[in-house]
Amino acid sequence: MTRQPDRYSLVADIGGTNTRVALAEGLDIVHGTVRRYRNAEYPGLETVLREYLESEDDVDCAGACVAVAGPVRNGVGQLTNLDWRIDTDTLARATQAETVSILNDLQAQGFALEHLKPESLQTVIPMPDAVPDATRLVVGAGTGFNSATVYHTRKGRIVPPAEAGHANMPIRNEADLRLAKFVETAHGFPGIEDVLAGRGLERIYAWLGHEQGAVREVRAKEIMEALAEGSDPRAEETARVYVRLLGSVVGNLALTMLPFGGIYLIGGVATAFAPYLERFGFDDAFRDKGRFAGFMQNFGVSVVSDDYAALVGCASHLCEVIEHEADF
Rank of each mutant, 00 (worst) to 15 (best):
H210S: 13
G144P: 09
L258Q: 15
V139F: 11
A180Q: 07
L258C: 15
G209E: 04
H166P: 14
S147E: 01
V241H: 10
L246Y: 14
E163R: 05
A148S: 08
T238E: 00
L179P: 02
A239K: 01
K117V: 13
S231M: 11
E222D: 15
T135V: 15
A162Y: 05
T238G: 00
P161Y: 00
F145I: 04
P118R: 02
V218W: 06
G251A: 06
W207I: 02
R240P: 10
D194L: 15
A226K: 07
E202Y: 05
R199N: 13
G247M: 04
E211R: 10
I125N: 00
R244M: 07
P126I: 10
A197C: 11
A235F: 09
G198Q: 00
N252R: 14
T143Y: 00
D232Y: 11
T135M: 04
T153Q: 07
V124P: 00
Q212A: 15
G156F: 02
I204H: 03
F189T: 12
R240G: 05
A214C: 12
K221H: 12
G230I: 04
T153S: 08
V138A: 01
E222R: 14
T185N: 09
T149I: 04
G198A: 05
A186R: 15
I125Y: 03
D176L: 07
V139Q: 04
R216K: 14
I158V: 14
H166W: 12
D176E: 10
D194F: 10
H152L: 04
G140C: 04
K117C: 08
